[in-house]
């Protein structure tokens, strides 16, 4: 299948991209890595009149370090995120989650920023970004603004990025030395998550001092399992403690029902897999 016709522009600066977004074309979409957007266009589920390809803006790619923060350009690919020594050392959860996105070919093209702005409820990267308390830098006609991850994901396929804005970078606070695990549950390898659990924990002397737990596809946006996080803090870094704390994982969630499972099953999986993810995170 072939997309419907559209105009195309490939600006080489953020400023030019913002200008392009402000043009009077009827429906404008930003093309990042295209790994979600192009299939949607091919199936003609969307028919934009103008694509603004931000793939040629060099400043949007790359991973750098700023004091207590890792800064990831929005156009950095999943493969580069997964393989980055900086990300692995300071935001291990994100590296692990990026390594599970789709398949190697998609990871070569798909971008962190693109995945976050696409905001698929079953996407692998929003939950780690949420859990790591990242900040998202959004550029618009009036300059840059920064949005906390907790405020970024507004609804299914909807984020804080406005019509005439682009996400430029993701600032991830360093979680150096934290254990991390991304537990993804699928029926076949390249499937979207039926559910997934993103966990990162800090362990001091065998006791969990800080815990962050996020859930994928348990609602229209990624969610924090706050009750689990609270229950884990102060607990010994053991499987039993993890299992006990995880029993509250599905509290307050509203997971979907589809051919892969109903809501009740997803709630059950959330508790089981959260326990496993925490166990794996404290172990590693």
């Amino acid at each position: 299948m072939i997309p419907a016709a559209f105009d195309y522009t490939a600006p080489e600066s953020v400023a030019d991209a913002i200008t392009a977004l402000g043009s009077d074309s009827e429906e404008i979409k930003v093309l990042a890595g295209g790994q979600s957007l192009i299939p949607v266009l091919r199936l003609r589920l969307a028919a934009p009149t103008l694509l603004v390809d931000i793939g040629r803006i060099e400043e949007l790619s790359g991973i750098t370090e700023e004091a207590d923060t890792i800064v990831i350009g929005a156009m950095t690919t999943h493969a580069d995120v997964a393989e980055s020594d900086l990300v692995r050392e300071h935001a291990g959860l994100l590296a692990k989650a990026a390594q599970t996105v789709a398949d190697p070919q998609v990871r070569h093209r798909g971008t962190l920023g693109g995945a976050l702005v696409h905001a698929d409820p079953a996407g692998d990267l929003p939950a780690p970004i949420l859990v790591l308390d990242a900040e998202l830098v959004i550029a618009g006609a009036d300059g840059e603004r920064t949005v906390a991850a907790a405020d970024f994901f507004e609804d299914m396929f909807t984020t804080a990025v406005g019509e005439n804005e682009i996400l430029t970078k993701i600032r991830v606070p360093k979680h150096t030395g934290w254990g991390a695990h991304y537990e993804k549950f699928t029926r076949v390898a390249q499937q979207w998550s039926i559910i997934a659990v993103a966990v990162t924990v800090q362990v001091d002397g065998g006791v969990i001092s800080q815990a962050k737990v996020g859930l994928v596809n348990m609602g229209s946006t990624p969610t924090r399992a706050s009750a689990v996080e609270q229950a884990l803090v102060g607990q010994p870094a053991t499987g039993d403690a993890a299992k006990h704390a995880a029993s509250a994982a599905a509290d307050g969630t509203s997971p979907p029902t589809d051919t892969n499972g109903d809501a009740a099953y997803r709630r059950h999986l959330a508790t089981v897999l959260t326990g496993r993810a925490v166990r794996a995170a404290v172990g590693g």
Partner: peptide, 12 residues
């Protein structure tokens, strides 16, 4: 589509 009709890959 192959998103929902689950043909297994080598990994499965």
């Amino acid at each position: 589509s192959f998103v929902d009709y689950l043909v297994p890959s080598a990994a499965d």
